[in-house]
Design a protein around this nucleic acid. Sequence first.
DNA 1: CCACTGACGAGTG
DNA 2: GCACTCGCCAGTG
Length: 113
Amino acid sequence: MMQAFSYEDIYKLARRIPRGRVATYGQIAALAGFPRHARQVGYALAALRDSHADVPWHRVVNAGGAVSRRSDPGGEDYQRILLEGEGVEFDNRDRLSLRRYQWRPDEDSGSEL
DNA sequence: CCACTGACGAGTG
DNA sequence: GCACTCGCCAGTG
């Protein structure tokens, strides 16, 4: 049966995002089996702690392909730096191309482009 | 146990 | 393309 997801489920999915790729909050929610719960995914990531240092939270962006604002000042820049470090390019409007970088689970075992 | 706290997204005008 | 509305829930103190 379908029960409430735990933040752990979100983290588990986020860990599957390959380097150099990104996923959206809504996408993670949908993969977890809860479409329209994008916000809860955001909350889950906001609650990340040391115990989940292996979660590539920086690979999760909003539906517009931009880095979301959070409470930690400077964190947006940090996330962007991490992504750029993986080869992700941002345009002059601080947005990346989901067309190019969005992760597709079905591409897990295959090649892209 | 209750109150408060957060990284969103799709639809409409 | 921007402003606004509504739907959405688990952790922490």
